[in-house]
Design a protein around this nucleic acid. Structure first.
Length: 879
RNA sequence: GGGUGCUUAGCUCAGCUGGAAGAGCAUCUCGUUUACACCGAGAGGGUCGGGAGUUCGAACCUCUCAGCGCCUACCA
């Protein structure tokens, strides 16, 4: 027996455990159908589940469960990302509590600590995903630092290096002075800030009373200046080109050069060139072969190349300005809105910094990645995102992959005594190559840098399946079917996966890429810890159950748009689960158990034919929408059917049958109701796996677990099966509406008459008399024949029937007149429209025949209605 | 600067290839009917941001104006 109340906490976790212990998430390799696979966007091992994960993984789980029920070989490959910077920061913070830094431990011991941390606290997010109901094959769980995945990283690195697609270069890179590592362009966030523009002047060497005027936002970088640039088109200043000026304070001479980078319109028209600390200046420096002077230490304090060795840039700035003022060279300081780069992890100001770094030749790898999308080997859903993808791929820059961290994949690079590079998968092979190269044994030094986390994430689609081994999993599941992820990660991840996969596998990593939006708060603001507007999905699950949260995500997911979290909606979907629960209890109480080989063509009762037709319509709708990744349409189709059709109408309509004594009718209706409930549980399962399973386990008689129940083909049904009951429903609605507008008490049993009704409809009235009376709360429903209307009757019109109800007491005929008049007005307005259209020759000539026919049908229907309403009005004209 | 998206009922949003404006929540009225008050019945509420065009027909296509947002580059 089902519990009286729907209480998800009672069963959700138990059901999940059972699935997992049964191995229900493992692919059915014996299936003769296609493979379907998804690799999870690996959450950071340090992560906890947020609403974005809840959305992303709900969508994946819906696709996975749907395809599993389709009978395919289905794999949802789970795992986590080692998240270099994030994880290192967590462990360093823990060390700090013990008063230690990573340097106190040394690299090896520190990495041990990270692994220890991972073992103890790294599983949180995977546990949370289970709570959400994610049916990943956890027996295949991977971690980007696993031995297998590390092997893949080394292999592809060596291959790229040997193909000349990875190279080392001394370049200006984004440097994070807090973490003391290079970061990629994508890891830098630009923030609007109100800064200052400083105007001052450099004396000329030849005549120290003559000056060149400079404007800069960063005066302290002047110690790294190696030129001042002026545009040769700058009439006011071009005479200075070729002369030499002097950097004050340090009195170093630098040339004044001609370069178009100096825009005569901006600033003073003359630009100080600091090639080692500014990306534009770096380019100018390269063009003019200027020296590059590094003035910063790795922690962004000024170094010995400046007079302010050891000061922070801020301190040095103040000092520089003071000194310039003292020398009488400072001219003015103005407020200046500007954009300053910050590290997205550390939150500190990023410095352009000259270092040796490793780069992937992304522009070359992008060629194939671009082509694959162009040729539709990989398709974005919604397709518009391919524009974003192309935009990025067309402007792609070399990818800086080296990080000066300890936690990550150490690069497979060894240096010989003369700095010759040996790139091999293992130290042994490197040693071998080196010994051969030098003709004797030499000691090698390994590169200490580790790889950008996204390097290993880029291999995720095939490395998790066992590559470089040619495993069964790789053969079966690669390329994967679809990747589901947020638009914010297209560049970070999708693009890198495409590049890496096309390079190594010569095939796309996934055939489709479904992109969804962000989950925002109720007001549509981005959720963030600092704003304090985050909602913990685990709390929501605790409160309403995982199914309610999942259904919310699915029902809210319309392509290409962000989702605003809404507690009232989630609550509404909890109510939906309750509704289903109670409907199931109704079925259970009335012994609706599914009948083996239930033959829908043998069904006799109209009401059962009707619900069978409707549930098959719903099945088709859900199926079509899932096939097209239209999650909200799919979810809403089940919702509407379950609540609006099955509960609100069918259950109410069959109650008289169950409370009656026609055993044949009862038997058929029990079987039909069970058939429909069975179908509901199946098509709802991908969205609400827990409650459907709990109900299935209690009610279903089919000898199959719901998680593997075959997805139904929509059964063929006769369109006419719906007509009779649809007519009755409209009729009931009209009576109810009349009662309500006349303020008739619900308890009052009434006698209703019909008049002017078509013969077919009269048949329905006779056949479904009990059913209509029951739901319309009528004592009796009969034909008025040709008797005249009496003064105590109210009237209304439903389709072709005029409904009349005699009332005890006085009818407010003025109210009735105005109600009928309003109806007549609407009809007249519609009729005008139909007439206008149908008398329009071009409409009749050019519109499709079906559209014209439909318009005619509506017209005649409205005409018929109009006559009835007019007749009704005429009857009460003198009352 | 370049790219891209949005503007539909009080609120949050659907509306897929152009063919009579929808949902949920909120509001109002009625109802403790034997699955369910986490409920039922009924009702009100929109000239689909403004303007122009294409079309027999536009919330949907084109142009334009206004407002909001996101991504991206640059700003000495």
């Amino acid at each position: 027996m089902l519990e009286k109340n729907y209480n998800p906490k009672e069963f959700e976790e138990k059901i999940y455990e059972k699935w997992e212990n049964n191995g229900d998430f493992k692919p059915d390799m014996k299936s003769d159908k296609d493979a379907f696979s998804i690799v999870i966007p690996p959450p950071n091992v340090t992560g906890v589940l947020h609403m974005g994960h809840a959305l992303d993984n709900t969508l994946q789980d819906i696709l996975i469960r749907y395809n599993r029920m389709l009978g395919k070989k289905v794999l949802w490959q789970p795992g986590t990302d080692h998240a270099g910077i994030a994880t290192q920061m967590v462990v360093e913070r823990n060390l700090a509590k013990e008063g230690l830094t990573r340097h106190d431990l040394g690299r090896e011991k520190f990495i041990e600590r990270v692994w220890e941390w991972k073992k103890q606290s790294g599983g949180t997010i995977c546990r949370q995903l289970r709570r959400l109901g994610a049916s990943c094959d956890w027996s295949r769980e991977r971690f980007t630092m696993d031995e297998g995945l590390s092997h893949a990283v080394r292999k592809i690195f060596v291959s790229l290096y040997k193909d000349g697609l990875i190279y080392k270069a001394k370049k200006l890179v984004n440097w994070d002075p807090a973490l003391e590592t290079a970061v990629s362009d994508l890891e830098v966030v630009q923030k609007e800030t109100l800064g200052k523009m400083y105007y001052y002047k450099y004396p000329l060497k030849d005549n120290q009373n003559e000056f060149i005027h400079i404007a800069t936002t960063r005066p302290e970088t002047m110690f790294g200046d190696t030129a001042v640039a002026v545009s040769k088109d700058n009439k006011k200043l071009s005479h200075l080109i070729g002369k030499t000026c002097i950097i004050p304070i340090i009195n170093r001479e630098i040339p004044i050069i001609a370069d178009d980078h100096a825009d005569p319109e901006k600033g003073t028209g003359a630009v100080k060139i600091t090639p080692a600390h500014d990306f534009n200046d770096f380019e100018v420096g390269k063009r003019h072969n200027l020296p590059m002077i590094n003035i910063l230490n790795p922690n962004a304090t000024l170094n010995e190349n400046t007079p302010y060795n050891g000061m922070t840039t801020q301190e040095a700035r103040v000092k520089t300005i003071d000194e310039l003022t003292r020398l009488g060279l400072m001219e003015k300081i103005e407020d200046h809105p500007m954009v300053i780069p910050y590290g997205d992890r550390s939150g500190v100001v990023i410095e352009p910094y000259m270092t040796d770094q490793w780069f992937v030749d992304a522009p070359k790898l992008a060629v194939e990645a671009r082509r694959a999308v162009n040729d539709k080997e990989m398709v974005f859903v919604p397709q518009a995102y391919e524009k974003t993808y192309f935009e990025w791929m067309n402007n792609i820059q070399p990818w800086c992959i080296s990080r000066q961290l300890w936690w990550g994949h150490q690069m497979p690079i060894w240096y010989g005594p003369d700095e010759t590079i040996f790139c091999e998968e293992t130290e042994e092979k490197a040693q071998e190559a080196a010994d051969k190269h030098y003709g004797k044994h030499v000691d090698l030094r390994r590169e200490t840098d580790v790889l950008d986390t996204w390097f290993s994430s880029g291999l995720w689609a095939f490395s998790t399946l066992g590559w470089p081994e040619n495993t069964e999993a790789l053969k079966t599941f690669y390329p994967t079917s679809v990747l589901v992820t947020g638009f914010d990660i297209i560049f970070f991840w999708v693009a890198r996966m495409m590049m890496m996969s096309m390079y190594m596998m010569k095939r796309v990593p996934f055939k489709k890429c479904y992109i969804h939006g962000l989950v925002r708060d109720e007001q549509g603001r981005k959720m963030s810890k600092s704003k304090g507007n985050t909602v913990d999905p685990m709390e929501t699950i605790e409160k309403y159950g995982a199914d309610a949260l999942r259904f919310f995500m699915a029902a809210s997911e319309t392509q290409g748009r962000d989702i605003n979290l809404s507690d009232s909606r989630i609550q509404g979907y909890r109510n939906f689960a309750t509704k289903l629960w109670n409907a199931s209890r109704f079925c259970e109480m009335n012994e609706c158990y599914s009948v083996k080989d239930f033959d829908i063509s043998s069904v006799k009762l109209e009401i059962n034919k009707w619900i069978i037709a409707k549930v098959n319509e719903a099945t088709k709708e859900v199926t079509d929408n899932l096939n097209n990744y239209r999650f909200s349409d799919a979810a809403n189709a089940v919702y509407q059917f379950v609540w609006g059709t099955f509960c609100d109408w069918y259950i109410e309509l069959i109650k008289p049958i169950f409370y009656g004594d026609n055993s044949q009718e009862i038997t058929e209706t029990r079987a039909a109701a069970a058939y429909v409930l069975d179908r509901i549980l199946v098509i709802l399962h991908p969205f609400m796996p827990f409650v459907t399973t709990e109900l299935w386990n209690n009610l279903a008689t089919r000898n199959v677990d719901l998680i593997k129940a075959p997805w139904p083909q929509a059964d063929r049904v006769n369109e006419n099966d719906k007509n009779e009951i649809d007519w009755a429903i409209d009729f009931i609605g009209a009576v109810r509406s009349l009662r309500s507008s006349m303020n008739l008490p619900a308890g009052a049993k009434l006698h209703a008459f019909v008049k002017d009704v078509n013969p077919e409809s009269l048949t329905i009235i006779n056949k479904q008399n009990k059913l209509i009376c029951n739901l319309a709360r009528l004592e009796e429903l009969s034909l008025l024949a040709d008797k005249p209307i009496s003064k105590d009757m109210v009237q209304t019109v439903s389709r072709d029937a005029v409904i009349l109800i005699p009332l005890k007491g006085i009818v407010d005929f003025d109210a009735e007149r105005s109600r009928l008049q309003k109806e007549l007005d609407t009809l007249n307005k519609n009729l005008e429209g139909y007439a206008r259209k149908l008398s329009n020759e071009s409409f009749v000539a050019k519109a499709p025949a079906a559209v014209v026919e439909e318009e005619k049908r509506r017209q005649s229907e409205a005409l018929e209605n109009k006559e009835k309403v007019e007749a009704a009005l005429a009857r009460i004209a003198n009352f």
